[in-house]
């Protein structure tokens, strides 16, 4: 995972800002978006591929709302002893239900998001992680959503 700042030109920035909105649903969407950005489809595709390869973009495509398809997300945390941190991170990351995992400064020092297809799979994933790590999983299900949007201007 890239953790340093990338060098981006004006076109890269325009593409990133534009693609935090909606990508067209039409036969030739890259050509259509390219017209708005003043480039042809091949140039746009090449830039997207480069930014994905370099880790500037983590993903390009449909953003699925798992809950609307019957699935579930869960934010959860572990209090990992420092001496075991790398080992526990490897065990948690190896679980396919873990979509994101971040180290944070707190007694609860490992925060991850589980994304699964069914409510039952959520309970199973928590039990699996507790068995794999020997640590208690603190679950933070959302009780109310106030805002969700990830928009960064670059």
């Amino acid at each position: 995972m890239r953790e340093t700042r990338a060098v981006l030109d004006a076109l890269d920035r325009a593409i990133i800002n534009r693609l935090q909105g909606d990508f067209p649903l039409c036969d030739e969407p890259y050509a259509e978006l390219g017209r708005a950005l003043g480039v042809d489809a091949a140039t746009l595709i090449a830039r997207l591929r480069k930014m994905l390869d370099e880790g500037v973009l983590t993903r390009f495509g449909p953003m699925f709302q798992v809950e609307r398809m019957g699935g579930r997300y869960l934010l959860a945390a572990l209090a990992v002893p420092e001496a075991r941190y790398e080992e526990v991170a490897a065990r948690v990351n190896a679980d396919h239900a873990v979509a994101h995992n971040y180290r944070r400064d707190h007694a609860l020092n490992m925060w991850f998001v589980l994304a699964v297809e069914t409510p039952e799979a959520l309970d199973q994933a928590c039990a699996r992680l507790e068995a794999a790590t020997g640590l208690a999983v603190y679950a933070f299900p959302k009780e109310r959503e106030f805002f969700v949007e990830m928009k960064l201007t670059v």
Binding site: T4, R5, A6, M51, L57, R59, G61, P62, M63, V154
Partner: peptide
């Protein structure tokens, strides 16, 4: 129906210079 939030890109905020991420 909201099964897809949007079609688009997810930038890596670290690579874009948003290196501080506070919960």
């Amino acid at each position: 129906r909201g099964a897809i939030r949007r079609i688009g890109a997810v930038p890596n905020h670290y690579a874009l210079g948003y290196t501080a991420n506070g919960m």
